[in-house]
Every structure is written in C-alpha cells, then in structure tokens.
Design a protein around this nucleic acid. Structure first.
Lengths: 231, 231
DNA sequence: ACACTTATTGGTCGCACGACCAATTGCTTT
DNA sequence: AAAGCAATTGGTCGTGCGACCAATAAGTGT
C-alpha cells in the first residue's frame, strides 16, 4: 500500500498564517481555473490541501472573499505570462511592441488559453451574484486594459504602429478578445475560424498595421477543422 | 387579511399536459431572464406558478432540460423582437436592411437588452457544466447568426450594403456584440462608452457603410452618468 | 352515476454548501 | 520544563437542491 496520497489522520502540520493563506489562495486559484469558480468551496479547497474545511473557513470567514482572491491570483499570474510587466526586463531595452502583440495574440488564441477564457467568462457571470468577486473582476479588467495600453503607447512612441487613442484602442482589443472567448464552452471546436482571428484583425485595423502582422499562422493543433458548420 | 396572493391550499387546478408544460417553460424563462439560470430550479418555478415542486419535476424529470428549454424560450422570443423573422411582414415588401440593422443596434445597445446580455453570458458559462443547455445554446447561436446573415444578404442584394461573405460578417457582428455584453455585470455603468459602440462601428466597417449609419444617437436613458470611474 | 386515467399533491431521502464553535495540539516564550 | 498562544481539528446546524414515490382528486369516457 504505497499510494498513501493523503496523510489520512492525526498528524497536524502547523504553518505560519501568511504562508498558509497564500497556500489556500493558490489552491483555490487552481481549482477555479481548472474546474470553475463555483467549485472553489471551503470543502473543495480544503480537500485539495489535505486539510480540514474548518481551517479554510478560519482564514476566509466569508467564502466569497476566497473566490474573489482566487480569481485575482489566477488572472494576475496569467497576465504576467501574457504581457510581461514593464519593469521585468534586465536590459533596459523594451521588446518590439509589435512582436509583443504578436506573441500576445498567438498565446490568447492557443488552446492553452482556453482555461483562462473560461475563467473570465465564469467570473463575469458570477459577478452578478457576488459583490466581492465583482470588485476584483473590475480591477483585473482595468489592469489588463492598462497593460495592453502600455504596449500600444510604446508602439506609437517608437512609430511601429499608429493610433489616435491608445486607451480606446486597448479597450477595443480587449472587447474583441472577450467576444471571441465567449464561445469557449459552446463552440470551442471551430475556434480557429472567425472569432479567434477577429481580435487580431481588429487590432491590426485599429493600430494601422498591415493585415497579417498580428495574426500568427493559424496552425491549429486540431488540424481536422471542418468547413462551415456542417449542420 | 386581503393579501391572499396564493391560493394557499387545497384547490387543485388540473390542466392539459401541453398547456401546463408551456406554462412551466414560460415561467422558467422569465426566472432565468430576470434572476439567472441557476435560479431556474424546480422549487423556484413551482413557486412562481403557485404549484407544488413535484409537479414541475413530473414534467421535467431532469432539471437540466427545464433550464435548457427556458433559455431557448427566452432567447427565441427576444430574437423575434430584435430581428423579426423573414415571413413576418404582411405586405411582401421587406424593410430596408440598413434600417433593420440600425434598429437592431439601437435595441441591443439599450438598457432593455441588459437582461438578455446577462442571460447569454449566464448560459455560455453554465454550458460548461450542463450538456443539455450547451446544445440549446449552440442552436441559438446558429439561429441568431443566421438571422443576422439574412439581413446582410438582403442588403447586399438590394445594394444598400456591400460585403464579401455575409456568413463571416454576421458571425463577426455577433462576436462584437458578445464582447460588449461580456461587461454587463461588471461595468454596466460605462456601457455607453466604447464597447456599446464597437459592435455598430465594426458592422459599419464590415458592411461598407459610412461611420455613424448604424450607431444610433447615444441618448442613454441614464443621463446622470458620472465622469470616469470615480474610484 | 360509475369507473378509470392521470394530473397533482405532500412528503422523504441523500447530498453539498456556508457558518459556527468547543476541544485539541503544535510551536514559541518564559 | 512549564505556560500560553493560536493554528487546526472534528463536529453540528440550517438551508436549498434534485430525485423519487405513494396517496389524492380532477376530469373523461362509459
């Protein structure tokens, strides 16, 4: 009997509050990202950490707070992977904005981004009922928008792209991405088709780039793409 | 004691199965539209109709089916209000496609459409967990897309608008609308701003119309609009 | 008027959730 | 080594859910 996955009983592992709290949020973020925010429950998270539910309840007297923080933790990490923050380069030289955007659209269009799309969709809906989550979602919306705006502004500065209002352009790009990812749970199969391209195409139009600059090769991992909804 | 809102007890009202079923679906659709699809529960719907929960369970042995049908009923009705189906005109003359589209964007941009935006967001997320709902959502996505495509095709036929591929254009318009409505639960206040316009603007660009043709006057009913998120 | 079908009731069962609390036990301080 | 703090446990309580079922009563046909 080697598969003793859980420490079963007895042995308590006492940790520093701050550390335990981070651990809980990280576990909650993972659950929320992979299974959905409604699965971020005291019991589920406790189970993940092999801890008693009461402990999670101790750190989060209101379960809503845990859900909200889980969302923020997940999106924050994802954003950093998508668009490295301003001060993250050792060499002072910033990367080419167009290249950054191309990488950005390549990532958001790939299957690896699916869970993130689901998370946003999930959070936006759940915000209807959970005020705490709502605030965190609004904050992340702003943050993502700002991060995109930074790239665009850098691009206009270096002249590699042109745009009247970086703020508006960033918001439009974000809206297009959200529109495309809205179909993640219903039509994920024909993702490569129109919606996925729309965001990049819109960005190209919005930023005065030649079509195709941002739309990476559509080498979808699923090469079996059927023609036009075969209903 | 005049407020005898419910018939309290005893009196049974026996109805024909078909009629009762429609009644249940209609009530469920209303609940789903106003309170959310997770509130479409056997008990909640039964309460709405002043009937015992078991009865609803009798007509819908699987609760998922009720949720799915409620969604379809709600969106079907809404679509007909938004874009009257092809054969709905007594006089054979079809309306001017551009006028139809203008009306369409005016309606989707108004506050009356908020609950519908919420419903779609709701359904798209819930489709992650409920296969029955998922199928209905996919069907409605197709239907909405087709209905828009009809208008566009009519427009290209009459020459009032130009477009390479009506099918793709319709899908793009829908994606834009979905992107805009994604923010309904988090940033409904500054709806008038960028997102709402984006859909109409994209449609104008997509259909070769002069900017402003489809974007109706942004006379928001909420005239008390405060300046930029005052956080 | 009667019997028969079935729409409708009233109730139970098991489950998962958040909230709450007293008892326990690991760690730190004295 | 003893005392104290608090992280952690184990358990309870109330709620709302879907599913299920036997009993009831409203119509329908004879």
């Amino acid at each position: 009997m080697s598969g003793m996955t859980s420490r079963g009983s007895g042995k308590r592992v006492r940790k520093a509050p701050a550390e335990r709290r981070e651990e809980i949020v990280a576990a909650a973020a993972l659950v929320g990202l992979t299974e959905g925010l409604e699965c971020v429950t005291l019991r589920r998270v406790a189970d993940e950490l092999e801890v008693r539910p009461g402990l999670v309840g101790h750190y989060f007297p209101a379960a809503d707070t845990l859900v909200a923080e889980a969302f923020t933790a997940a999106t924050l990490q994802e954003l950093d992977a998508l668009l490295p923050p301003a001060g993250s380069r050792q060499d002072g030289a910033a990367a080419d904005p167009v290249a950054v955007l191309r990488r950005f659209f390549a990532l958001t269009g790939s299957a690896d981004f699916d869970n993130v799309s689901r998370l946003w969709l999930n959070a936006r809906h759940l915000s209807r009922y959970r005020p705490a989550l709502r605030e965190h979602v609004v904050a992340q919306e702003l943050l993502w928008c700002r991060r995109i705006e930074e790239i665009i502004t850098a691009g206009t500065g270096s002249g590699s792209l042109t745009c009247a209002d970086p703020s508006t352009a960033a918001l439009r790009v974000l809206v297009a991405i959200d529109g495309a990812s809205a179909y993640i749970n219903t039509s994920a199969d024909r993702r490569g088709a129109v919606p996925g391209r729309l965001a990049a195409a819109l960005a190209e139009a919005e930023l005065g780039l030649v079509p195709g600059t941002l739309a990476a090769a559509e080498a979808e991992d699923r090469a079996d793409g059927p023609g036009e909804a075969g209903d």
